[in-house]
Amino acid sequence: MYEKSANILIDAPLATVWDALTSPPMIERYFFGTKLTTDWRIDAPMVFRGEYQGETL
């Protein structure tokens, strides 16, 4: 398995960044309409659903 990492500095309050990473309506705005489904429990799946080039994913 390959592992990659990257760093980026985001000039925004921590609460705003956290909301962007965990709020399904926010994720949908920047992730091309993708819908996130999860119950946020430890080890629970995070399922992203959407369309890409006409194909449902």
Rank of each mutant, 00 (worst) to 15 (best):
R49N: 15
G54A: 00
T56M: 10
D43L: 12
D43A: 12
Y52A: 11
G54K: 00
A6I: 06
R41Y: 00
V17L: 15
V17Y: 03
E3Y: 06
A12E: 07
A20F: 09
D43K: 10
F48Q: 10
R49H: 12
Y2I: 12
L14P: 04
P24Q: 06
K4D: 12
K35I: 11
K35L: 10
A20P: 08
P25F: 07
E55L: 11
L9R: 06
I8H: 01
E55K: 15
L57K: 10
F31G: 05
L36P: 11
A6M: 09
F31N: 13
G54E: 00
I10Y: 03
L21I: 14
R29D: 06
V47F: 02
D43C: 03
Q53P: 00
E51C: 01
M46G: 09
M46I: 13
A6L: 08
P45W: 01
Y30N: 02
T38K: 06
W18P: 05
K4C: 12
E3F: 06
R29I: 02
P25L: 04
A12R: 06
Q53M: 10
E51F: 05
P24G: 08
R49F: 04
M46K: 14
D11R: 04
S5Y: 11
T16C: 01
D11L: 02
S5C: 03
K35S: 09
K4T: 14
G54I: 00
P13F: 02
L21H: 12
E55N: 08
A6H: 04
W18N: 06
N7V: 08
L57M: 12
G50S: 05
S5Q: 13
K4Y: 15
D39K: 03
I8R: 03
S5H: 12
K35R: 15
S5D: 10
I42Y: 07
A15G: 04
R49T: 15
T22Y: 04
I27W: 09
T37V: 13
Q53F: 01
E55Y: 08
D39N: 14
W18Q: 13
P24R: 06
